[in-house]
């Protein structure tokens, strides 16, 4: 939390803080509509304000990844609309392409293994073609440095880093583009508890300083409550909103808060909803999909 203030200037060097108001309206997604008709999302609506940290929780296969894929532009929707800063982003007639205003951090990690850390970090700036290499690299180094001195591994290849460091680099690779929304697809899923706790602290620092709108997908309720301003619990397939809870724990969040009455009350309110849906999914014996 110490040297993170530099990150602020580094991230804001591009332009003034972008808005990042996302509005998902009545979005449905049906796979194979002619045949098996698998309804992944059913009339899903949610609005989030600029700078919101929104966590979406649900059992495997509830369509939460489908939602992220639609927002990211990896998947089409069957009905409904998505707006970003009040501009129509995606609808049935307007399939959405992926773009640097909505950058994804992937579940399995997707740093290019054949590029160095710095080349990974500057990739977006270089490809968008508005930044000269020298400037992109200077900014990359600056952001790596601000994120706990990661500039010392700028010339390393991703395979030489621990999974926690890989994830931090990947978040910087997303953040350097000054996206309107950061889409995190269960990025800490494969990590052990100690690493997770460290990563949560890093992510909260980044969130506090960059003021980005974040959509965080997870199946871990505690993680969601600890990190987010708002937690949406999804029903099992077809995915809709089951619970929409405001997490009014103060920031900065600390691990001690997880023992507070407020946190426990929140958890009690949500945990049953999550269990119910997980149970339903389990009984259906559904394999993970979407």
């Amino acid at each position: 939390m110490r040297d993170m203030l530099d990150l602020n200037s580094a991230a804001a060097a591009g332009k003034p803080a972008a808005a990042g108001k996302v509005s998902i309206r009545n979005v449905s997604k049906i796979y194979d509509p002619e045949g098996a008709r698998v309804v992944a999302l059913d009339n899903f609506s949610v609005d989030f304000a600029p700078g919101d940290f929104l966590a979406i929780v649900g059992p495997s296969g509830c369509g939460k990844s489908t939602l992220l894929n639609i927002l990211a532009g990896f998947d089409t929707l069957t009905s409904g609309e998505v707006y970003l800063d009040d501009k129509l982003l995606a609808s049935v007639d307007r399939p959405l392409a992926p773009g640097p205003d909505r950058v994804v951090v992937f579940q399995q990690g997707a740093l290019f293994p054949w590029k160095t850390v710095l080349d990974n970090v500057t990739y977006g700036l270089m490809k968008q073609g508005r930044t000269p290499r020298a400037e992109a690299e200077a900014r990359g180094i600056e952001m790596l440095k601000a994120s706990g001195g990661l500039d010392r591994i700028a010339k390393s290849f991703p395979s030489q880093l621990s999974s926690g460091m890989q994830r931090r680099v990947e978040i910087i690779r997303a953040l350097i583009n000054d996206p309107k929304v950061l889409l995190l697809d269960e990025p800490f899923r494969a990590m052990d508890t100690v690493n997770k706790v460290t990563m949560h602290r890093h992510l909260l620092d980044i969130f506090r300083i960059s003021q980005k709108t974040i959509m965080f997908i997870t199946h871990d309720l505690e993680e969601a409550l600890f990190l987010a301003d708002r937690v949406i619990v999804m029903t099992t397939r077809p995915g809709t909103v089951k619970l929409d809870i405001k997490v009014d724990l103060p920031r900065p969040r600390t691990r001690e808060m997880m023992a507070s009455d407020a946190y426990i009350a929140l958890k009690e309110r949500t945990v049953m909803a999550v269990r119910e849906e997980a149970q339903k999914a389990f009984e259906r014996g559904e394999k993970e999909m979407a």
């Binding site: 990211a72 532009g73 990896f74 392409a97 992926p98 773009g99 640097p100 909505r102 950058v103 994804v104 992937f106 399995q108 990690g109 997707a110 740093l111 290019f112 990739y123 977006g124 490809k127 968008q128 073609g129 690779r173 997303a174 583009n177």
Partner: peptide, 15 residues
């Protein structure tokens, strides 16, 4: 090649 690499390139602005 994992699908995510294609997606990562595309969402960072790769053509």
């Amino acid at each position: 090649i994992p699908e995510d690499y294609f997606r990562a390139s595309a969402c960072l602005g790769g053509t």
